[in-house]
């Protein structure tokens, strides 16, 4: 063992410098050319930064589209999911409450039409997206709260829908923050 100890220590030191120091610095340099300059991409509204494009945020007012329920209340300094098991009784009560809340705010919607993602917590607690179906189901509420025609809001959703990669891989998504900013900018 002794024969190998000194080379091991020295090799460790040079590798720590290469992999722990030079490697991330190189990437931070490359990131200067990327959108957001490696700091994360922000969204601006009326000259004010209102959040990060990729980080979901809490929306509770009727005039905004709501995102996914969050187990960490959209705290982006402590991401996480609920970790509740599918058959956990306490968890199912929480889901039932979410269903009731959603129905109370969206009286035109039938229970069986609610997409599951609107009553279940996301993995990160920061899911920035909805599926198009989960956005369209909220149109009536948002239209009423803003006194706009539902058709106009549907067009806005369509304009903010990101199709699957190459049109055939993965899911279609709607970024909730960008959609809500677009709503505020309609006027």
């Amino acid at each position: 063992m002794k024969k190998y100890l000194l080379p091991a220590i020295k090799l460790t030191i040079v590798l720590v410098i290469l992999l722990g120091g030079i490697y991330p610095l190189l990437l931070a340099g490359i990131a200067k050319m990327a959108p957001g300059k490696g700091d994360g991409v922000t969204v601006t509204h009326n000259g004010r930064i209102v959040g990060y494009e990729q980080i979901g945020q809490k929306f509770t007012e009727d005039k905004y589209f709501w995102g996914r329920p969050s187990a960490v209340d959209y705290n982006a300094a402590g991401s996480g999911g609920s970790n509740k098991a599918p058959g956990n009784e306490d968890y199912l009560k929480i889901v039932q409450e979410r269903i009731d809340t959603f129905l109370a705010h969206n009286p035109d919607v039938k229970k069986s039409e609610i997409p599951a993602e609107l009553v279940t917590a996301s993995a990160s607690g920061l899911d920035p997206d909805l599926s198009p179906a989960a956005a369209y189901i909220q149109v009536a509420r948002v239209a009423k709260a803003r006194s706009l025609s539902p058709q106009k809001i549907k067009e806005l959703i369509a304009a903010n829908t990101k199709q699957p990669v190459l049109g055939m891989l993965g899911t279609a998504t709607v970024n909730v923050l960008k959609l809500n900013v677009a709503l505020d900018e309609l006027k």
């Binding site: 999911g81 599918p86 269903i99 069986s112 997409p115 279940t120 899911d127 899911t171």
Partner: peptide, 16 residues
């Protein structure tokens, strides 16, 4: 509970 899960189980999952 009366929810159709057309896209599947979504608890602890991300839409994207």
């Amino acid at each position: 509970l009366g929810i159709q899960q057309l896209t599947g189980s979504m608890e602890g999952k991300e839409v994207r």
